Amino acid sequence: MDKIKEIIVVEGKDDTVAINRAVIADTIETNGSAINESVLQQIQHAQDTRGVIVLTDPDFPGQKIRGIITDRVPGCKHAFITKKEGQPKSGRGIGVEHASPAVIRKALKGAQTTNEQAVEEISLQDLFDAGLIGGKGARERREQIGQILKIGFTNGKQLYKRLKMFQITQEKFAEAVTQVKQEEKDA
């Protein structure tokens, strides 16, 4: 079983259990989206000493937690699972706790660091031109792009911000768009 050096930030106890089924790692639990100052200080200390990987649920509260941490603790790595990967067999709920060990390992392996100071390479017009904002199928294409680039599922505005945060180059973006268009053709 792989040992992870960084401390993984998750939402709750069930997420920690799922992480420990997949890898050997320490976690910090935010106890939901009401993340308090004490937890933020723990995350900052963890980032300063060992590094942090944020792995939250692919839903609105998970995005909110990720945003709070990004604003307060720069330089954290981010790992993502898709809604489909976090869905239980019963179909009720969604989250890291329902992801398989293989999915969690894959997400952690693909973790990337954000950088708010990144140079803007991809414009909103590029997103429109690629069919990622507005129009039929844009949501599905954004979901595929998020998986390919390992930046998670987003709405149009969030996609623009994440491409910048994760320093996605024009070249990587174009390759991902080409892959999505090829998959649409093949379908």
Rank of each mutant, 00 (worst) to 15 (best):
P61A: 04
G86K: 01
C76A: 09
T70A: 15
L55V: 05
P58W: 07
P74N: 13
P88E: 07
G62N: 07
I53Q: 04
I69P: 07
D71H: 08
Q87F: 00
A79V: 05
K84V: 15
K64H: 10
G86P: 07
T82Q: 11
E85P: 01
T56K: 02
S90A: 01
G62I: 02
G75W: 07
C76H: 02
Q63E: 15
T70G: 14
C76Y: 03
D59L: 00
V54L: 07
G75R: 10
E85C: 00
I81G: 01
I68C: 05
H78I: 09
P58S: 06
G62A: 08
I65T: 11
T56I: 01
P61S: 06
G86R: 04
I69M: 12
G67V: 05
P61L: 05
I65K: 04
Q63G: 10
P58K: 03
I68P: 04
P61F: 00
P58C: 09
K83H: 12
G86H: 11
K77L: 07
E85N: 06
F60L: 12
D57Q: 03
K64F: 05
G67Q: 15
P74F: 03
P74I: 10
I65D: 01
T70R: 14
K83R: 15
R66D: 05
D59Q: 03
K64C: 12
K64T: 14
D71P: 05
K84S: 08
A79W: 01
